[in-house]
């Protein structure tokens, strides 16, 4: 083997794979054509709508390593059954069934799709709905519940008001994000997102900007929007989703 034949072999073997697996697919994925919601001539184009601080919320999510335990991917049924797990892949109740697998447009606005490394924690693709459900049970708002959960994921007293039910979270192994909170003097009626523990007469524990942005991002995670007919793997759900 001479150096020349070695180099030619190296560049050919790596270059071919590089073109076929990296360069060309990435270029094609960068300019996906718009898709119409249905075959009808005047149908709208599919467009995913998100609100909230997606970009910098996702950066805080990444910097604190949430992706090491939480995934954001609902796999097709031939690769996993998480789509059937309650409130993970969308909402499923008597009125509607919006459960679906992840779509390529679900990460719009983010730089990097945090598919996740492990599922030591539950999938967060539709965390927004779960937060609302938890909040309803504990008598909090979804925002308050999420902030309290970031402060202490093993909080057994997640409850506001008298009619709220207590949820046992003591089994969680999620790290708490204490650096995102600070003690502040109590002013007026106080902060609506203040944590309901460690509060004295004069001070309260309130979320910093980071926790607020991260919470905002987490609550936008509702990846169950109705898909175009041509991409919908559960057409019987199309009607229910559309009426939602």
């Amino acid at each position: 083997m001479t150096l020349k034949s070695f180099l030619i072999g190296m560049f050919a073997s790596f270059g071919l794979a590089w073109l076929c697996m990296i360069a060309i697919p990435t270029a094609k994925m960068a300019s996906l054509p718009p898709v119409k919601m249905s075959g009808e001539e005047d149908a709208e184009f599919y467009q995913r709508k998100t609100t909230g601080r997606v970009l910098n919320g996702a950066q805080i999510y990444a910097a604190n390593g949430c992706y090491t335990c939480h995934s954001q991917l609902i796999r097709p049924t031939y690769l996993g059954s998480q789509i059937f797990r309650k409130d993970v892949a969308g909402v499923s109740n008597a009125d509607a069934d919006t459960r679906r697998e992840t779509h390529y447009d679900d990460y719009r606005g983010e730089e990097y799709a945090q598919l996740g490394l492990t599922r030591m924690g539950p999938d967060l693709s539709n965390y927004g709905y779960r937060a609302e459900a938890y909040a309803a049970r504990t008598g909090m708002t979804a925002e308050q519940w999420t902030v309290a959960h970031l402060y202490n994921p093993r909080n057994e007293e997640l409850q506001l008001g008298e009619q709220g039910e207590e949820i046992d979270m003591s089994w969680s192994n999620c790290p708490s994000q204490l650096q995102m909170f600070e003690d502040k003097d109590l002013v007026g009626q106080g902060d609506s997102l203040a944590i309901n523990i460690n509060t004295t007469a004069m001070t309260q524990v309130v979320p910093r900007e980071q926790a607020r942005v991260l919470t905002d991002y987490l609550l936008t995670l509702k990846r169950d929007s109705a898909l175009p007919e041509s991409m919908n793997n559960a057409p019987q759900n199309a009607g229910a989703a559309a009426t939602k």
Binding site: A17, K28, R75
Partner: peptide
Amino acid sequence: WALAIIAPWAGFHAVMGSPIPMFL
């Protein structure tokens, strides 16, 4: 040479099940 030819194609199965082209 088997390593040089095979290995550069490997790795995309880490995101299997995500909506990227199937052949990848």
